[in-house]
Design a protein around this nucleic acid. Structure first.
Lengths: 205, 205
DNA sequence: TGAAAACCAAACCGACGGTACAGTACCGCA
DNA sequence: TGCGGTACTGTACCGTCGGTTTGGTTTTCA
């Protein structure tokens, strides 16, 4: 029928939306196949079992988000000719991106998995962990560049600071979901930006 | 048999631990009653259905955490004779408290619910929202006191700043769970403390 | 044309939430 | 002393649903 993993992608799209709104366990295969207009057998042709789906979901999420961050901070680096400016512009772009999402940011699969991880096998948890470490490496490198140019006004560990970017996003998403106020996540990103500014900016204004 | 809601508390204790480690949906009633050494009938005597359990879980979580925060920031206010000092001390005490928890902080039911909320009825979601708003009010009041004494070095909304406290906690817990590194949450709280310091402190050191 | 890829149909089975109901042990109170 | 409410136990049962399997069918492409 369909060529080139088209059905597979459809399954992942539908599954992702469902998982983010209800949790992994509450998302049934039956529901996914109905929405994808295939049969249960079709699903199990593409995924060995439900764990394989979770794995694919996280793996794809990492890839998409990585590309998004690549693009976003590349643009930021072009706009600002200085590592600190680039970071500040990048965070602003990120906040704007989140803010402009219709219906708010859909949420993060990694967070979703973090609170349901006993459901998953080691592969899935390991993929989840890899995602977070990837973000740490990314932002750590950027903060290293900044710290090479600007002295810090408070002595903080740069790995921890890098984790704060992911943490602020994840935390913002939770508060945002709990209150059903989509704008909160981007506001929190802007607060993080304010911290980075105060931490590295040479002159306090 | 047991008087004074002893069994009820036992059910809640066991359910809480299970929900935090596996998610609500993956926690079966059968499992709870086995660990609590009661029968299924006993469970349904105390809770109309599983949703009632979720509700009670969140309600209790709010109460316990509120008392904990009350105690912690009361102590902080005694130790520092200034709203800013009190906040900084309070955050340090909080970080220490989290750090000293054996096996790391167990996690937050509110976050757990946030990513599985379609499972729950309106009551549960409303209780969850109330919890987050309660935290906002609490920290907002503290930041108001600070801002009345010290000018801010960056103009930020105090409600958003208050949300950042909860957000940093929740985000830290997620990163911490994903990486299985219990120390991360308290580190993130200390970073938030650093931000508060830079934001309000009269002299940058 | 034939094999591999992509999918359909149907059935299985165990788990889980929830119900119903009869019975029991304890406790305070009148 | 006994009455009634509280706090359960025990058992039996039901409907649903979800993951998984087996076996067969169509489609695609080399």
């Amino acid at each position: 029928m369909a060529r080139g993993g088209e059905t597979r992608r459809k399954i992942l799209d539908i599954a992702q939306a469902a998982v983010l709104s209800k949790g992994f366990d509450a998302t049934s295969i039956e529901e996914i196949v109905t929405n994808a207009e295939i049969t249960k057998s079709g699903f199990f042709y593409h995924f060995r079992d439900k764990n394989a789906l979770a794995h694919a979901l996280i793996e794809r999420h990492i890839k998409v988000e990585d590309e998004l961050f690549d693009d976003l901070f590349d643009r930021a680096r072009e706009l600002g000719d200085d590592p600190l400016q680039a970071m500040l512009i990048g965070l602003k772009l990120l906040a704007k991106l989140i803010e402009d999402m219709p219906g708010g940011h859909p949420g993060c699969i990694v967070a979703s998995a973090a609170y349901q991880d006993r459901l998953f096998d080691r592969d899935v948890r390991e993929a989840n962990s890899r995602a977070v470490l990837g973000w740490r490496r990314r932002f750590r490198a950027m903060f290293d560049d900044i710290a090479n140019v600007y002295p810090m006004h408070d002595s903080v560990d740069l790995d921890q600071l890098a984790d704060m970017v992911s943490g602020t996003l994840e935390g913002g998403l939770i508060i945002s979901r709990a209150l059903e106020e989509p704008s909160i996540t981007s506001q929190q990103v802007m607060l993080l930006r304010s911290y980075v500014k105060l931490l590295f900016s040479p002159k306090v204004q």
